[in-house]
Simulated assay, not measured.
Amino acid sequence: MEDSSALDVAAATLALATTDARDPAPALGRLAETAHLLLGVTAGAALISEGAVHGVASAGPDGPCGAVPAAFGQGPGGEAARSGRPVLCADLTRERLRWLAFVAKAVTAGVTGAWALPIRSGSGTTVGALLLLGGRDTVPDLRAADLLAGATGGAIGYAAELDRIDLERRQLQDALRSRIPIEQAKGVLSAQTGLGIDDAFGLLRAHARRGGHSLSEVAAAVVDRRIGPAEFTPE
């Protein structure tokens, strides 16, 4: 790789790694477009979840791009995504029986070679695949392609981790909001009945079960004085 192309790859890798991938569809589109422009081949990218490939994006001439969806079905793209391993084929005519529909479309469009690399998140989990389609005189730089795929996978994994952290934060906030009135209600009932805190909690829980209400709903009613100690009976 010449210095100029190395700089281009480095800049593209950085751009893909820092992209906002909370919505992975635009990130896949940027990966495909970057691979097409930088490597000079038709490119496609897709995600995989529970064994199903989806969200296919492509960039390049219309003819070869028409073969990209088939490549992510029973083709090299789908195989790389599902196996987590590169699938490299410089001569598709030798793989007609392996990928019938894809090879037929690819050869008709002038594509003779296909290279698929897994897209992995920062944790190493395979989240999709990058597909490259070329002609007889077009062999892509697979080292550069792997860098681009890795950068996109890292961005997707980072976004997923942010989503997980945000979900946990919201769950903790919800739990705290529901817990505060329960603790307040335990104190109110304890003061009203002369029972200990644990026994007061037992009254709350028994009342909630009998009425089919949530514990937080009953607790809020106690704190607001909408129900009094006379309505409570032990478990």
Rank of each mutant, 00 (worst) to 15 (best):
A52I: 15
T34S: 14
G44Y: 05
T34I: 12
A43W: 01
S49T: 10
A45I: 05
A25I: 07
L39E: 04
H36C: 15
T34R: 12
P69A: 08
D62P: 15
L39M: 09
G66R: 04
L31A: 04
V56E: 11
F72P: 00
L28H: 08
A46W: 04
T42V: 14
A81R: 03
E33W: 02
D23V: 06
L28F: 15
C65I: 02
P26T: 02
A25H: 06
V53F: 05
V68I: 13
E79F: 02
D20L: 03
D62C: 03
A67P: 10
A21E: 10
A70T: 02
A70F: 00
H54W: 13
H36T: 13
L16F: 02
Q74R: 11
L16N: 06
A81Q: 12
V68E: 13
C65R: 13
A25M: 09
G44W: 02
G55W: 01
E33L: 14
G63V: 04
L38V: 11
A25R: 10
G60M: 01
T19V: 15
R82L: 14
G77T: 10
V41C: 13
I48H: 01
L31E: 09
A35L: 04
S49Y: 02
A57K: 04
A52T: 15
A17Y: 00
L31F: 00
G78T: 09
G40E: 11
A71K: 09
D62Y: 00
A81N: 08
F72T: 09
G55T: 10
H54N: 05
P61R: 12
H54T: 14
E33D: 14
R82V: 07
A57W: 00
T19D: 14
I48R: 13
D20T: 02
L28S: 08
G44N: 11
G84Y: 13
L39W: 00
G78L: 08
F72K: 14
A46R: 00
P69Y: 00
H54Y: 14
A45E: 07
P64K: 01
G73V: 07
I48C: 09
V56F: 04
H36P: 04
C65M: 13
S83I: 03
L38S: 07
A59Y: 05
T18D: 11
P61V: 03
S49I: 02
G73K: 03
G77M: 09
P24T: 03
S49Q: 12
S83P: 09
R82H: 03
G29P: 02
A81H: 03
V68F: 08
A70I: 00
S58V: 03
C65Q: 12
V41M: 10
P76I: 08
R82M: 06
A21S: 12
G40I: 06
T42E: 09
A46H: 05
A32N: 03
P26K: 00
L37S: 15
A57M: 13
P24K: 01
C65S: 15
R22F: 01
G84S: 12
R22G: 14
G55E: 08
L38E: 10
G40T: 05
G29N: 07
A81F: 01
A21F: 02
G63D: 15
G78S: 12
G66I: 06
R30H: 06
D23T: 07
